[in-house]
Each structure stands twice: as C-alpha cells, then as structure tokens.
Design a protein around this nucleic acid. Structure first.
Length: 225
DNA sequence: AACCAGGAGAGAG
DNA sequence: CTCTCTCATGGT
C-alpha cells in the first residue's frame, strides 16, 4: 500500500525532473573518485543549516588553497580553516567539526578503507563525532561511501507532510519508512533524495513557473575538483 | 531590515 | 524526551 505510493512518488519525480543534475552532480556522481568522496564529506558538514551556494564558495576557497583533501584539513590550523570556510557561515564551529571528521577518516585509513565496512558498524562511529548528527551521518554514508541509508532532511519532511504519507516526523521512523518500502539500493536512495530536494525547491520558486527561475551563474563541481 | 538557507550541541524544564 | 538558544554568513 504505502509501498506502492513511495515507489510511484519516485517514478513521478524522475518523470518530472529526470536525473539529478547541476548542484547534485557531485553528490550523485557514479562512480566517484576519492577526491569527490572527500569533497562530499566536507560539503556535508558545511551545508548544515546553510544553503549550497555558500558552501560552494567555501569549497572553492579550500580547493584554491589546495586544502580540500581530508589529510590537508587535518594539518590546517583551526583559525586558517575557519577563514577559508567563512562563506558557509558558522565558520568557527564548523572548522572544529571538519577537523573532528577529517581526523577520524584519516586515522581509520581513509575513505576507501572505511567504505569496506558495513553501514551498521559505521553509523554509530560517525554519530559519536562532534558535529555529526543523523542527517550528516547518513549523507556521508549514502553519498560518500555508497551505503544504502536513506537521508531524511527538512525537504523530505515537507514532502511527507504534503503527501500526507504519515503523521510521525521522527527521523528514525521516516528513515525506516522509506527503507522498508524501497529496494535496498544506494543509487536509488541517492537519486530519490536528491529529487525530493530538487522538487521541493522547485515548488518554493513555484509562485511562477519553470521559466521564472533566474539563470544564476552556477559553479560547477569541476571548479573545486 | 528582517528572515532564511539541505543541523547539531548544550542546557533547561 | 521535547523545546530553546547558539553558532555566522550572504542573499533578498
């Protein structure tokens, strides 16, 4: 029953928007290079309560300074790191978070090594890091490590509310809901979640229509990779 | 000029 | 366990 509804929702989003593009070309890239995986991790921290446009500026700063890799972030001073990521806001607190996460990944032998572990084992370890809550942990698992963990964010909740799928908006509950009603496939989860965000933003601009979306000069993922 | 943008931690009740 | 405050910047 619900199974049908969620599957249909995905198909409709695909029909409406196609595959995720533009800002999502980094997150949904397949396969990903190690550098892309690391950029996803950095982006996942920087985008907390912050729009992606500003995160991109911070990523460009890091790339230009050749400090985008997790190894180089570990060796950066907090004040320097905070200066580089300033456009993404909350720079002091996020600099600390970034170093926490980067130190963890480097200490554990890098992204490819951690990618070999199961999500069940990894998730608690990520959640134990200061600066990593449920959404950030699952974003890293899904988009950086190709683990089938569905990401629940504010846009997902809006969709659930509008569609009246359920009335409980608890994180774990919604995550289980989506995962129990979809095949356990990280590619599906990546595209589905991206399309949810794309569609909700699309509807926010939607006082007018598609044509009114102003063509902002967008930074491509190549700019910081 | 207030308000928001893909959260999370710490503290209070 | 569920609020509320804090963290900070750039765009509208």
């Amino acid at each position: 029953m619900l199974n049908q509804k969620i599957c249909v929702l995905y198909k409709e989003l695909r029909k409406k928007h196609g595959l995720p593009q533009d800002q999502w070309s980094l997150w949904c890239a397949r396969p990903k290079t190690v550098q892309q995986r690391e950029a996803v991790i950095v982006g996942a921290i920087l985008t907390q309560n912050t729009n992606w446009e500003n995160v991109e500026k911070a990523l460009v700063n890091l790339k230009t300074a050749r400090k985008l890799s997790l190894r180089s972030i570990v060796s950066l001073r907090l004040a320097t790191l905070a200066q580089l990521i300033k456009p993404a806001g909350y720079n002091n607190i996020k600099a600390r978070y970034l170093k926490n996460v980067a130190e963890f990944f480097v200490r554990q032998g890098g992204v490819l090594k951690l990618k070999k572990q199961t999500e069940a084992k990894l998730r608690p370890q990520l959640l134990a890091l200061k600066g990593v809550g449920p959404e950030t942990a699952d974003s890293i698992l899904l988009y950086a490590l190709d683990k089938p963990m569905f990401v629940i964010d504010e846009y997902t909740r809006r969709l659930v509310k509008k569609q009246r799928l359920v009335r409980n908006f608890n994180y774990e509950f919604l995550q289980t809901l989506f995962m129990n009603n979809l095949s356990k496939n990280y590619k599906l989860y990546q595209d589905f979640h991206a399309l949810i965000v794309i569609d909700q933003k699309f509807q926010m601009n939607g006082q007018n229509s598609v044509l009114s979306v102003r063509p902002r000069e967008n930074i491509k993922s190549q700019d910081f990779l």
